[in-house]
Design a protein around this nucleic acid. Structure first.
Lengths: 202, 202, 202, 202
DNA sequence: GATGAATGAGTTTTCATTCAT
DNA sequence: GATGAATGAAAACTCATTCAT
């Protein structure tokens, strides 16, 4: 049951989802170490022990929450940007969506911004754990498409990915930890302007 | 005595520095919560209790270490870039130095990457905690100078700061947590090329 | 229903027996406290809750299993030794059978060895719990018969019982916990020789 | 500190001894699993955490207590029986002392009788753990001496050891768990009579 | 001032038992 | 009657912090 969520009944699945949702909420406010299982259980309206029917331990709950969250977000984004015709539009739309989605769900942005940075020891012990890999891979693919369709000049896709993701990530972290000190949408547009200018065709 | 390091004798000062150095080392490897005071004490070759003669508590040690670290780094950088003649050169040099310095001191880059992101609760409990504030302010000032000297087009300094710092931060994080998967210097130059292009005069 | 197994249908009885059998197996490997109800249930191929339809709680399951086990063993032994003509032969045969039976069922000897020794608190809470009482009483009766028929000299039956049972118990415990470090049958015969010599007619 | 008690100061040593004493007391009354560390700590008048300065964990505390107890008892016995002239007298004296010592310290006999029987899994995981090994080896040596000095007939020393230790062990277990249902000293003499008779020279 | 032994609050996790289906 | 998901009480253990030496 813990290894696979496919075998769960509808009722169990909704219970599992309630736990994941509560976990994201608590982890994002408290951080992993200060988050208490009993707090998550209370929010999810289950007993403490119930969490252990669905997840092996606290760390596994964090990882599962992270994985499902990024998977869901990415799927939703992919669906939305497909309405754009050119690869460049899709890339720009992706930037918009990233900011928009996280504006609507502040807990989520906190969760991703804070918990992304685990201790180096954590990464050494879990070499395969790469929560944002798909997300970043997807950005890179968008960039390659944009170059291929000749909308922007030829740049190193990895370098551009680092700029785009790093900037978005830091933008949202600053905005949320400093209590929204600037207009997120305006700032985003100024950033896009600079980056876009940096990659436009000569 | 704990609030102020000015009254300390030479011997005490070197003890305090040993503790800070050990703290950065341990925090950067373990993260704040998994770091043990006893481990820091052992590395600094002092007794556990001695740490509490210099710092109020573990959190205070983290904040102090962070502050002194960024202050030192910043001072060193300021000295070095002053040899550059134009503001633009100083900005570009700053980027170079940031990457170079952290390549030489991997623990430091880890430390910044980890400790930069505390939980919202942490920020609420430490309203004055504003890590990197001076660092970021300095970047912003460099940018304003560069615009003023007319070396680049007029962009929002805050926006460009977010791009520069966010990208540098993520670049170093990816490079260190993924075990140096690319040449740091080459990647840096590709990134600088894109950003520079994005802000060059039309 | 829990107190009495007489009202059970055939199907229920076989389910109850499966639980008892599984309980002996698990208790004998894990000891009482480390044995899990869920493990016993799995072995018996019933649901965890089903066990509570037949037994009040874990402790009651232990006591019931113990009682039935010794009862069954004792009945079987009584039947077998009745073929012996003299009381002395029956006593000697009993010793043989004890060793033989437990060689064939190692789980059972472990079970007896472990469960025989509960903590004083356990005995205080279960004043009626007197494991092996019938078994030991039976040995004592055999001894009395043997004295009565004048096959051995007059000794205190209780004392001889302690020797016989204590020796058998420790012999089997040493043999099983130390991984059969000696030939059980040969050792048994050497022991019988000594004890027999100690009680033979002067 | 945990590996070696030789480096401890006098004060620490007395604290360690207080913990061991309290542990024997609590383990012997409650058994290992129902014994609470907090209870042992309270009895020893130390904080819960202090126990972990001297022992790695609960199991290690049990093993340490067991080892030191048997070592102390054995040493005391060796000293005392050395006043006896013949090996046979030493063997008989040993039997006396065993019963006498445990009569004076009921908690100790409960501890040895109950905790000796760990679960088979415990022995599998700790193959080297053989708490009574020295004790039993010593009995065997006494027996060999007795045979050598020609005081008793030639019997298998291992077989006689099993009889002597098994009987003593069970005698004391019955006596203590059944609330002293007979005179221990009288029963002991009846037992010695039988065993002695069984091994006397023909 | 420096030490490090001692403290004890705090939290994850297990598992016997229950009860809705 | 049978099931097994859910419950929640209970306890070992850790580690920041204190304070007697």
């Amino acid at each position: 049951m813990k290894e696979n969520k496919k075998n769960l009944s509808g009722k169990q699945l909704s219970k599992r989802n309630a736990i994941i949702k509560a976990a994201i909420d608590v982890f994002s406010h408290k951080g992993f170490h200060k988050a208490k299982i009993s707090h998550i259980a209370k929010l999810a309206k289950v007993a403490d022990g119930t969490i252990y029917l669905y997840f092996n331990n606290k760390e596994n709950l964090l990882v599962s929450a992270f994985d499902e969250l990024t998977e869901n977000i990415l799927n939703e984004m992919k669906n939305t940007i497909n309405y754009e015709k050119t690869a460049l539009d899709r890339l720009l739309k992706f930037f918009d969506l990233h900011v928009e989605m996280f504006t609507k769900q502040p807990a989520v942005v906190r969760f991703l911004a804070i918990e992304l940075r685990q201790s180096p020891d954590f990464y050494e012990q879990h070499p395969s754990y790469n929560p944002l890999k798909e997300y970043i891979t997807f950005i890179e693919k968008l960039i390659i498409d944009t170059i291929t369709e000749n909308s922007i000049r030829v740049v190193d896709p990895k370098a551009l990915t680092l700029i785009i993701f790093g900037t978005m990530d830091f933008l949202l972290a600053e905005w949320s930890t400093k209590n929204q000190p600037f207009s997120l949408v305006e700032m985003k547009e100024k950033i896009v302007d600079i980056i876009h200018w940096g990659i436009r065709k000569g």
